[in-house]
Write a protein that binds this DNA or RNA. Structure first.
Lengths: 158, 158
DNA sequence: CAGCGTTGCTAACTATTGCAAGCACATTGC
DNA sequence: GCAATGTGCTTGCAATAGTTAGCAACGCTG
């Protein structure tokens, strides 16, 4: 049933592989393309095209797909090129942008954060992963986090 | 030159008024619709339609407009319904999602962050705002923050 | 085996985005 | 006054997103 795919639109086959990512998440969830399409409220042929990189879905469609897959829409946005991660990382940026903190507090938080990060790098220890509040298996979540970081680096190089 | 606008698509006239926001930002920047369109790399009739809520621009167009206005694309995404703010806030979410921190470190950071926020709330002091790295006047930035929160609530009710 | 259901995909179609050509009006300088 | 230029908008159209109808292949069951 699996057909050989021709090389179509190499751009969509780059590191930032939205379609491949959606397909992988769907496989992990062990649901068919039609089931996902139904849950997401999109047509199954269209989802097929998206997965194969033949179409570029809107943010609205990405949101629907993300919801159906129980993953963050941001993960899809980043791969679709709608969102970029920031060079300082999400935590640094969020702290700097918080209008309810003064400069001193921001600096303290950043220092603590940086020392924690340095602590982990020095020990080489794999941090204990906490279960995410979402109803997702841990394996899927950690893959998501890792993939986001990889996508960030490849985009910075562009 | 200002013509009376008919009530068009009341949905686009809601709290989440993307077009009105773009027009306001443009007015603040004191540039004409054509100048902004040129800077953004979009057609001026289309920008006109976007401002009047007649069209729903893609994320790509929003990004171009944001860049031309020297504002964050996220600000436009939120108003376009592409992004939502999170209930825990960006800092809490970023910390929880950081795969390079272990549970203990996350908890410590969250405790510090929470105590800082409580500290400010108890004293009622207006935290000293650090100048945003962007070239935006403070008045505009605070207005943006307020509007984001309002937009979130209206979307939750849907 | 035949029948049925599921699967992912093709092709034609509809809906919408975004653009080009052009309009009416306002402003500026001679 | 006039011509030149600037302004925001209208209209028609091309391109693309997204859907519908249907196909071929596969797996399961009696």
């Amino acid at each position: 049933m699996e057909r050989m795919e021709r090389p179509v639109k190499a751009v969509n086959r780059a590191v930032n592989d939205l379609g491949g990512y959606i397909r992988a998440q769907r496989a992990t969830a062990q649901i068919s393309l039609r089931q996902l399409a139904k849950r997401a409220g999109v047509s199954n042929p269209y989802l097929s095209q998206v997965e194969r990189g033949l179409r570029k879905p809107s943010a609205e469609i990405l949101q629907q797909i993300a919801n159906a897959l129980r993953i963050s829409a941001e993960a899809l946005y980043v791969r679709a090129g709608i969102l970029e991660s920031r060079p300082g990382g999400p935590v640094v940026d969020a702290i700097l942008a918080d209008t309810e903190l003064n400069d001193r507090q921001k600096q303290v938080l950043l220092d603590v954060y940086t020392s924690f990060r340095g602590e982990n790098a020095a020990s080489g220890a794999v941090p204990v992963r906490d279960p995410e509040p979402r109803d997702e298996p841990e394996s899927r979540e950690s893959r998501d986090g890792t993939a986001v970081h990889e996508a960030v680096r490849s985009e910075s190089e562009e």
